[in-house]
Structures are given as C-alpha cells and as structure tokens.
Design a protein around this nucleic acid. Structure first.
Lengths: 84, 84
DNA sequence: TTTATATTTAGACAAATATCTAAATATCTA
DNA sequence: TAGATATTTAGATATTTGTCTAAATATAAA
C-alpha cells in the first residue's frame, strides 16, 4: 500500500493513469502528453508498475501499458473506512 | 489535491488519521502512539492540516485535532472514476 | 548485416522530505 | 509572578525524489 501512495504522489503519474483509464497505450503515446524526456517517462512508468497500478505487455518493439484497476479498488476500500 | 496525496504519502501520517478516525486527540495523545520526537509529530500534523485532512482547535493549553472527512470524500470521488 | 526506432539503464545533480536538537511561545497552576 | 506543561518554530543534516544526458538493449526494416 505504501508503494501505491508513493506512486500517486506525483501529478505526472496521476495524469498517466488517467490517460490509461481511457485506453492502453505504449510509452511513446504516453510521452506525447508530457513535456519530459523519455527516460523520465520510463522512470514514472516503472514506479506505477512497481505499485501494481499498471501492467506492461511487450508487443514487438512496443510495450503496451494498461491500468490495473484492482489496486485502485484496494485504495478505495481503505478510504471507505473513513466514511462514518 | 496535490497536498492530499502528499500528506497521505507517509505511513506515520496515515496512521495518524486512522487514530483520529476513532476520536479527536491532542498532539500529546497522538505522540504516544509513535516513536518520534514531538517536533516531528508537530511537523506531520502541520502537513495533514495544510492538506485539510485534519483540523486543530485550541482548548486552553492543548490543541484538539479532528479528522476532516470532507477531503477524504473528494479523494474517494477521484478514485471512483477509475471503476469502470 | 546495417540502420532506424522504442524503450530502459546508469550515473549525476538539484530540490524536497523526515527527523533531530535547541529555543520560542502559550497556557496553566501554585 | 515563577515554574511547569503543551506545542510550535528554526536551523541542521541525511535520505529520497524527479529530471537530465549518455549509453545500452531489443526489435523492425532495408
């Protein structure tokens, strides 16, 4: 859970998962939405992947990244306990 | 929203709001649950306060801290958009 | 096999963060 | 008013984080 909060503690990464909410994308497509070099994009995707918020599936030269909604559910459940 | 994610990105602070979920407490009572000096407790409470996750009301010598569930709701709403 | 494209890894650096000690502020009590 | 208690502020330091450039890896196309 620590990794999830850490991963979400960055506006760029939150924007990335919002993009992936629409449809799976490869790193290059994601990069087009950000003013940031490729290695930085890669770094953010790695943090999201390690938090299990996204998955990456190799398709030839590309890697297609998809949102893993299961972890978002876990976070939701944690939050819900605060609703009295 | 940035401040909220930032505030939640620390296990001690998450534990603090979990404590405050039970009942309001002053800084000293909160401190008893952590292996950390008072100024550090104060620092964490300040970050939670600035994120509007908690409120502090002065009661004489003490400050009673309470959970602000409104902001948790905002976070919940952000998350809910990920449930397809 | 050579060249181009997609992506990651490695290493560096500035900025942000968590914690500490020492000192300051505010309030209570004798 | 003087001393005790509760909490915060200030300043220092080690660690973590986000970004970059340069180099490496993997696949595709010529």
């Amino acid at each position: 859970m620590n990794d999830v909060f850490r991963a979400l503690n960055d506006p760029n990464r939150r924007r990335m998962i919002e993009l992936l909410k629409e449809r799976p994308m490869n790193s290059g497509e994601i990069a087009q939405h950000f003013d940031m070099k490729r290695p930085s994009i890669s770094h953010h995707l790695d943090i999201l992947k390690r938090a299990d918020l996204i998955t990456g599936e190799k398709k030839g030269q590309f890697i297609k990244y998809s949102l893993n909604t299961t972890i978002m559910e876990d976070l939701l459940n944690w939050l819900i306990t605060f609703k009295k």
